[in-house]
Design a protein around this nucleic acid. Structure first.
Lengths: 341, 341
DNA sequence: CTGAAAGCGCTTACAG
DNA sequence: CTGAAAGCGCTTACAG
């Protein structure tokens, strides 16, 4: 058997349906789209032809013809990120309800990849795109927005045709820091994210601002750079421990770093929260199940995904989007406790 | 400013390029595709026109015209699954190398959703599809494979036009069980997955087979059904503990369940591995970072994704795929230890 | 080497 | 109510 010849049976086309039902293609199209009144008998004939041939209209051809693809491009950074994964799910479900199909592409936190993604999406004639944070310059987004409805998360900017939805990282970090301060911690170490990551810098600033507001500060030796991954978290704690600096609490600027930090602490025989309090940031779904369950800042990414989806649809359909991102919230679980002196 | 009028500037078309360069559309197409020799001067003219208009061919139109979309549909079950997420990443990267674009859709473990996904992908004229496990009947897959190159993971079946790549869950579970037996554990509790999940049933059988081979058995009261999520794992352990059955080790049939189990144990003051040994299954990336790091069975989903992608491409291009799934491997970390008596 | 024409599978004015 | 025709943006025999 020749494998190459196996797949020749092509799906039915509208024309085949028309022929089968002895009507014109136009009529079939109209019935499909409910776009005009059609006599009952033709309708019946067409419907049975559709069933007989197992016909489904080709959305690609429809898109070409209509000039609208009912497809939304989504630029995520990593298709396997536990954080953005939730956002994708939120996007997917609300887009489905609105009758749009998602097209997911990954930018890998590389501006060049992200731009390539954008170009590809434009070439595919998506009706709009959602970019989840990422590192493209605001300028190119503003430019693209002139010809393509764009919603972008993780930034505050405004440009015609674009809806930006920023999460308040600064405030979130303040909440986390305040929580620690309220528990009596003053020597707080901070595991940051990549220094060129906008979320990371805002969070660090928030942390510093809250310390300052309390008349304290975050000394240089207690700030150590992570990479927003677990492995960066363990490295960071190892570095901290090796430096012999003293601290009673750690604020990791995302949950994944916190996981790594917790492990490194455990390895060194330090208990969370008895010896060291630990707070994360993002509230990944799995953070309710770590040992101990992680105190963190809720960054409602699933909801953000939903809102972003509603926003692009608004933009695409000519409405002015008003969606906003939920405010950060501290989720106190079991990785923090009052400092005993 | 009227938002609805903002996005009228349409991307350049091949025809515009042709006009700009004063050649025929055919010539532009040929240059784009390197499909025929063209005079240098026209080539130059066309290239500068392309640059000037920032033209990118519309892949959708190309697909329609060529009858090939260079797009592969991927039916995953949940876009936010930490396990399948890795697989998607493997697929994405090798598809990109091969010059194909992925189109991800989610079946939510619902046969009807999966079939709808498949129908949608066919309607979009993907060149082939990868289905990651899921719950569609083998029969419908075999039927579809007659007209569409299909690769499916998590099953052993064979049908023309279809390549199945099964992971050896049975053997994997035997490895996990054997590990526990070798450490001296004989009273092993098992947290299963959904009873209609093929992976779950194969794993349970493997566990039972290995027990039997050792002259032991897995008593009913030590088998408790989970749902392959963390929450199911905690519930399962609570049930186990409430039953007052005795056991010295737990085999959770996936890592997420193991995470939940670990938490429930922690809550009850039981330490892993000192009081109870715990082994998972899958080796999620985060399993290296749990506390303690989880002993588990490596289920190389990233590699599976890569192999599956190579396989569809083979199928699509008329070759006979030979890709196989890596064998399971025990990864002994720190959640298991020798039983002390 | 290069253009005119037909076609991929739809939709949508335009007539009737 | 319904058909013939043109068009969406490309590709590819067919001529020359």
């Amino acid at each position: 058997m020749n494998v190459a010849h196996l797949h020749e049976e092509r799906p039915a086309t509208l024309e085949m349906v028309a022929k089968h039902a002895r009507v014109s293609p136009s009529t079939v199209s109209r019935i499909l789209n409910g776009t005009a009144t059609v006599s009952e008998e033709k309708k019946k004939a067409v419907e049975s032809a559709i069933a007989a041939l197992n016909f489904r209209p080709n959305p690609v051809a429809q898109g070409l013809s209509r000039g609208k693809s009912r497809t939304i491009g989504i630029i995520t950074q990593a298709i396997d990120s536990p954080f953005y994964g939730e956002g994708l799910k939120g996007i997917e479900s609300t887009l489905a309800e609105a009758g749009y199909a998602p097209l997911f592409v990954s930018g890998h936190w590389r501006p060049s990849d992200e731009q390539a993604c954008l170009a590809q999406l434009i070439a595919r004639r998506v009706d709009g795109v959602i970019v989840l944070t990422g590192s493209m310059p605001d300028k190119v987004l503003a430019t693209q927005a002139k010809s393509l409805p764009l919603v972008v998360t993780g930034r505050t900017m405004s440009a015609p045709g674009l809806h930006a939805m920023a999460f308040d990282n600064h405030e979130g970090a303040r909440l986390a820091t305040r929580h620690l301060l309220e528990l009596g911690h003053q020597k707080i170490a901070c595991i940051t994210g990549p220094s060129d990551h906008p979320d990371a810098v805002d969070r660090l600033r928030g942390c510093q601002a809250e310390m300052k507001a309390a008349g304290l500060s975050l000394p240089k030796e207690l700030i150590v750079e992570g990479d927003f991954l677990e492995s960066g978290g363990v490295l960071a704690v190892q570095k901290l421990l090796a430096s012999r600096a003293t601290f009673t609490a750690i604020l990791a600027l995302n949950d994944q770093s916190a996981y790594g930090a917790a492990l490194a602490l455990y390895r060194s025989g330090l208990r969370v929260p008895d010896d060291i309090s630990l707070v994360g940031f993002d509230d990944l779904r799995s953070s309710s199940f770590t040992i101990p369950p992680l105190t963190t800042v809720r960054h409602a990414i699933y909801e953000i995904g939903q809102q972003a989806a509603l926003a692009v649809v608004d933009l695409v359909e000519g409405r002015k989007p008003t969606q906003r991102v939920p405010a950060p919230e501290l989720v106190a679980r079991e990785s923090t406790r009052r400092l005993r002196r």
